[in-house]
Amino acid sequence: MENPPPTGCEQSTKTALDKLVPMFTKNHFEELETILASVDNDCGESEFTLRLRILRALLEQKETLPLINSYYAKNYPEVLIMRWDYSVEQKRAEIYHNNKADFNFVPLRHAIDSLVQLKSQALLQSPTFNLKPEEKQITLLFADRINEFSDLFEKNNNTALPRRKTSPLNMSFVDKERSGVSIYAGAETSIGGSRPIFRTNPTFGLMFSSRLSSDFLYEIGAKVRINSNDRDFDYLLYGRTETINSSASYSFGGSLGYKLYDNNDWIFYPKVGIYWESTATGLSEVIDSDNWWGNEYYNSSSIKFHNVNTMRSSLGFATMRHIKGKQYIGLEASYHYIPYNWDNSLLTNIQPNYASLQLFYRF
């Protein structure tokens, strides 16, 4: 919505709904305009109140065209179509709770909506109502017969049904209920220390991400740092010193973040992460083993890698910009503590402090 509704709108609508349901059940419309005028006074005219005015005029076979023309001029058909669409969502109660003003404070699948659909269907089927083309068209819309409404609209107007470029609702809410996948790319550099082993190197990641509707955001997956800008280091293997130049470091783990700000277009959140990290050394061996299964003997072999293994902890801050649907683009800046010398076989002292800056794409 462009402007928030005035204070008291929700309560005014709730009071009106309690009176409108029995009124439309019995088709007793003597006080209808008074009730709708009260809602309009507190909330401003809406699709909801104009829809009920049109339905009353149809049921009483009074002049409808000025009301129908106003309904189209305000783009209300598109608003109602989206209301019908959201009404069949599994999480419709949560969707309504987070977007009350966009739904004019009328809960999705409220009894008044059911009455509008039933009475509109009855109008279409009754032989006593001689509906004009414009009246039949909008009655199909009120009855939630959207395909027939769209076809008739295009036929009567010789034009395609206009589509809204941006929804009046918080369209991203449903998309934020879904988990996603994030692809990371950036650079990591050592901070502090003299003549670091690992200097500035490219990093990449693939993470499975939680839904964005929660305040807590978590990811789990793998990241790799390509050690293209590093120096040699010494590694002790079976009493022999090996000089190593690592090709890459692999991390497996996850992170947890907490949203500080979310206006659907932008999300800001700090995050902490912990990963098991293995830095490749190129050292490996084949291990043979003898096995018995029942009375049969067989030999098997496996490869054992002698990598530098440690834990990586991270503290970062990320921001995401919504593109469309489930798609976001983001930027993350992080500090990493990686105590390589936890590995007793590592002879060279490798400093543990690093910083990274990464772009990511979530879909």
Rank of each mutant, 00 (worst) to 15 (best):
R211M: 10
S194R: 06
R195E: 13
F204E: 07
S214M: 09
S190Q: 09
F208H: 10
D215Q: 15
F204H: 06
G205V: 05
L206T: 04
F208D: 05
L217N: 13
T203C: 10
E188Y: 01
T203I: 15
R195L: 07
P196Q: 06
L217T: 10
S213G: 06
S190A: 15
R211E: 13
M207D: 04
L217C: 10
G193W: 00
D215K: 15
R211G: 12
F216P: 03
S214I: 03
G192W: 00
S214F: 10
L206M: 09
L217Y: 14
S210Q: 09
D215L: 13
A187E: 06
L217H: 15
F198M: 05
N201V: 03
S210W: 09
D215Y: 12
G186I: 08
G186W: 07
F216R: 11
S190E: 04
M207P: 03
G193M: 04
N201A: 01
I191M: 07
R211D: 12
D215H: 13
F208L: 14
P196I: 02
A187N: 08
I191D: 00
I191W: 01
S214Y: 11
P196F: 01
L217R: 09
G193F: 01
D215V: 07
S190W: 00
G186A: 07
D215G: 11
A187T: 13
L217D: 10
S210D: 09
R195Q: 12
D215C: 04
G186H: 10
T189D: 05
L212P: 03
M207Y: 08
L217F: 14
G193L: 02
S214P: 06
I191T: 08
N201S: 01
M207S: 02
L206A: 10
G186R: 08
L217M: 13
R199F: 02
L217W: 12
F216Y: 14
F204D: 06
I197H: 04
G192D: 00
G192K: 00
S214H: 13
S194V: 11
T203F: 02
T189S: 14
S190I: 05
T203M: 06
R199H: 08
S213H: 09
F208M: 13
F204T: 12
L212R: 15
G192Y: 00
I191E: 00
T203Y: 01
P196S: 01
S190N: 14
